[in-house]
Computed example of a mutant assay.
Amino acid sequence: MGISLSNKEFNNILDELKKEYKIYAPKLFKGKGRFSDTDLVRYDEISSIEEIEFGKKSYYSPKEVLLPITQTLFYFTEDKVIEPEIDHKKTLVFLRSCDIHAVKRLDEIYLENGVEDPYYKRRREKIKFILMECEKSFENCFCVSMGTNETDDYSLFVKSEGDRVFVDIKDKEFSSYFDTGVETKVFPNFVKENKVEVNIPESLDIDIFKSLMWKEYTSRCIGCGRCNTVCGTCSCFSMQDIFYKDNERTGERRRVWASCQIDGYSEVAGGFDFRSDQGDRMRFKVMHKIYDFNKRFGYQMCVGCGRCDDACPEYISFSNCVNKLNEEVKEGK
């Protein structure tokens, strides 16, 4: 069972929740898209149901809520190391099913990969999910192929229809907030099929590294890194030490999102870059998503959100690449 409320009643509840939680959801930013006359849907703090963009896929994934693009780990002086003050507010974030699955992948990397990352763990422990349904499959999505089109890992399900909001409360912690409204049946509808289907090769192994298909991406990929930036499961970062001008012995250490597709990512001491070719970089990314991660954790890293295909200025399709791999394996190439 769930409840039905007016938009005004739901916004009043959001006001109460904001005393304890920061609330993030996809928002529409007019004129902020790739071109001057296009819009952008991106995650940001919200205060009302009207601000939430339910009908469009966000350009960026919500991972920046959990994993900031730039994060100061600590400040240093000549004789001290000081960690930044902790924001004690908890977080609520509106997510689609595939993005909830993407968080599970980040958990594997940052919490279940041998060493717990304390900075990620601190944020992760304070976050809860509000499920948004997808009424239809968006362009380039292939979540059904990846098995991420459905989930029950959420605290609340929220659906907006006109001037009414329908809420399913799974987490009893939130029951006290929803003491108004009309009882009704509320359940999420999940996408059952996508226009795009992906077939991950069975019996895939590293022999596929020798395939000539990777050469296609040497000429096509420009190494901009957009695919990694918008991806909900890419988790790589680099470290930066920032020294202050007024005293060069003081500063801060930051970690910043990194991309395996851009120059410098695979450069080692002495200046050698062991993946300078864009085809090699594409191979590394694809094989990590559908081979390496699966070998370690037992399921696929990619969740089929299709954002990499949406963002690529050269129209390189990850889903097409995986299907090409499947054909290569079938033909024994």
Score class of each variant (00 low, 15 high):
E202P: 01
V144E: 03
F138D: 03
I52K: 00
Y43I: 00
E314I: 07
K285R: 14
Q300R: 10
I109D: 08
Y43A: 02
K32V: 01
D246T: 14
F94K: 03
L92V: 02
I23L: 06
G33M: 07
V191M: 06
S276L: 07
L131Q: 03
G270L: 09
F297E: 06
Y43P: 00
F178I: 08
R123F: 04
M213E: 11
F142H: 15
V158K: 10
N323S: 08
E252C: 11
E202Q: 15
F174S: 04
V329W: 08
D153S: 07
E327V: 10
E9T: 01
Y154V: 00
R42A: 09
G271T: 04
E16K: 15
N323P: 03
I242E: 15
D153Y: 06
S219A: 12
M213G: 03
P26Q: 05
S276C: 03
F174A: 06
E45C: 03
D246L: 13
D310F: 07
V191D: 01
K90E: 14
M1S: 14
D152P: 00
R283F: 09
I127L: 15
M132N: 00
C321E: 06
S259K: 04
I262D: 02
A102R: 02
D292N: 12
E327R: 13
E252S: 14
E9Q: 15
I46F: 01
E193R: 14
T148I: 01
V268H: 09
N194C: 15
M239P: 00
S176R: 12
P201S: 13
M146T: 01
T91F: 12
E150T: 14
R34C: 06
K185I: 12
V286D: 05
K170I: 01
I82D: 08
E64H: 12
C308Q: 04
F166G: 00
F76H: 10
N11I: 05
S58I: 00
D163Y: 11
E331K: 15
M301N: 07
S319L: 04
R307P: 01
G279V: 04
C98P: 01
E267I: 07
S160D: 11
D152C: 01
E116R: 14
G114F: 10
Y244L: 13
N228H: 13
Y315I: 11
R283C: 10
L28K: 15
F318Q: 06
E53S: 11
V303R: 10
K27N: 00
K170N: 13
G251I: 03
M287W: 05
G251Y: 08
I290F: 13
F243T: 11
L95S: 02
L95F: 15
R220V: 12
L325M: 15
R275V: 05
K172T: 12
D168W: 03
F76P: 01
Q240I: 14
